[in-house]
Simulated scan of single mutants.
Amino acid sequence: MTIPGEGQINSVGEFGLIAEITALLPQGENVLIGPGDDAAVVTAPDGYVVATTDMAVEGIHFRRDWSSAAQIGQKISAANLADVVSMGARPTAMLVAFAAPRSLPVQWAMDVTIGIRDEAAKMGASIVGGDLASNEKIVISITALGSLDGRQPVLRSGAKVGDRVVLVGTTGLSAAGLALLNPSEVIDSIDADNFEELRAAHRTPKVEYELALAFAKCGAHSMCDVSDGLLADLGHVAQSSGVRCRIDPRKLDVSKLTDAALKLGVDPLMWALTGGEDHAFVGTIAADVELPDGLRVIGDVVAGSGVEVSGLDVSKWQAGHDHFQSTGR
């Protein structure tokens, strides 16, 4: 008799691993047919489906010596959920493709599944299927689906001159955590218990899904998930909309960054403006709309192009992560 989670994945085989994983996956009300057939069937009440895909590669997006399997699963799940929510949609389902070395412990595969599942459950989404393969490094690719529930999608291209720029969540925490996880003489001298909140923010970002949906429902003209940095992602909004977005840096909350920035000799605004993977949301909305509590107005939209940070020259800072040009995550 095989004990669930015992041994390496090559000892249980592909179909044994599928059986152990699917046993962990309850199906929600949006799922008509879940795992077990050639494809899943998910409801689309208004006839529209929002779809996105995000891939995570070991050594680039995550490290097993920094994060547990469940933390890695949670973070990858959050990246996909945030993309769906940034369109003003409610996540409904996920498909997960997983490649790993044959020697990977079965328990690791189960734990990463639990992390993906539990983060998805925060928004009522189910894992409805996927695929498995062997590979030298772990690769996880998720396709997430969502429902607009009769609303129009919120696009990057909808910003209008006169809008306010609104931030949902906080940026820079994950970037600070990454800096603290990277070894250096300065970091090695810092007490391990110091700044644990920042390290945790890199491992498992706390995403304001419901607040972002509330922003969409109250009339957001545009919105984008901040996965590659505030300057970069707001830049996508500005470019797609044909406008100029201005940020007032005094409106950014860097209170949790200042002590770590002082220790490491960096400007906390650099993390807040260029750091990715917090999965905050940035968007624009008309000036006369009453905003839900918890949203932060950080600037405005004017005629022109690009992104301006009032009183700051940010040209020395890389605006965001680019997989083919950036030197590291």
Rank of each mutant, 00 (worst) to 15 (best):
G162R: 01
D118V: 08
A120D: 06
G130S: 06
Y48V: 15
I21Y: 07
D313S: 09
A159G: 05
G162S: 06
R63P: 03
L25Q: 06
S174R: 07
G162I: 06
D188F: 03
F324L: 11
I21C: 10
L25Y: 04
N182A: 15
P91K: 00
A78D: 15
A19H: 14
K263E: 15
M94C: 06
T171Y: 12
V12N: 05
A179V: 08
L211E: 08
D233R: 01
D225S: 13
S326D: 15
L155F: 13
E290D: 15
H202F: 14
P183T: 13
H202S: 11
R117M: 14
I187S: 11
E197C: 00
D163P: 02
L312S: 01
G16C: 04
V226F: 08
W66K: 13
S255F: 00
E136K: 05
A125S: 05
G124Y: 06
P26M: 02
Y48D: 11
D38R: 12
T204K: 08
S126E: 10
D191Y: 11
G13V: 00
G124I: 08
R102F: 13
P26C: 06
E6T: 10
V254M: 07
R151S: 15
I285Y: 01
S77K: 09
A89W: 02
P4Y: 12
D288F: 00
D65M: 05
D293I: 05
V166W: 03
S222P: 03
